[in-house]
Every structure is written in structure tokens, then in C-alpha cells.
């Protein structure tokens, strides 16, 4: 009986150690996933910032006017073609 108790205690200690280690490993894996997720979010923020700055550069009134004229010209041409 004594030996059974000793063995069980030892087995319990081993199981506790393994479970603890696996929980810790799982925790770290989860944190790694979280870190990757955060990195992705940061990249989206970065992209948003980059695109808004790009839009600022591209969207100056002058360039918008040039674009508008080009679009209007295209529309005019299409209309002419349609009439023909």
C-alpha cells in the first residue's frame, strides 16, 4: 500500500509537471499567435497610413482637376462614338 501511494504521488507529480509544461507551452503558442495577429493589425495600420499619405499626394486639387478633365474627355468621346 505504501508503495502504491508513493508511486501514485510520483506519477501525480510527473503528470502535474507535464500538464504545467504543456499549459505553459500552449500559453506561449497562444501568445505567439496573438503577437502575429497584432503584427498584422500594425501592418494594416501602416498600410492605412501609407495609403492616406499617398492619397494626399495624389489628391491635390490640381491633380484632381487634371483627372476630372481626363475623365470628362473620355466621357465626351464615348458619347460622340455612341452618336455616330
Amino acid at each position: 500500500m505504501r508503495w502504491l501511494l508513493c508511486g501514485s504521488s510520483f506519477a501525480l507529480a510527473v503528470v502535474v509537471a507535464i500538464v504545467t509544461a504543456s499549459i505553459r507551452a500552449d500559453n506561449i503558442r497562444e501568445r505567439q499567435r496573438l503577437d502575429r495577429l497584432q503584427h498584422k493589425i500594425e501592418l494594416r495600420e501602416l498600410e492605412l497610413q501609407r495609403l492616406s499619405v499617398q492619397a494626399l499626394e495624389r489628391g491635390t486639387p490640381d491633380r484632381l482637376v487634371v483627372n476630372l478633365r481626363r475623365i470628362l474627355k473620355q466621357a465626351e468621346r464615348q458619347q460622340e462614338r455612341a452618336w455616330q
Partner: peptide, 13 residues
Amino acid sequence: IFHVDSGSRRYYA
């Protein structure tokens, strides 16, 4: 701040 495991892989802290 983030932590690294034994393989230098970073994880959330």
C-alpha cells in the same frame, strides 16, 4: 516589450 522563447521566437508580453 515582448518575450522570446528558446528559439528566439517572439511572443506577446
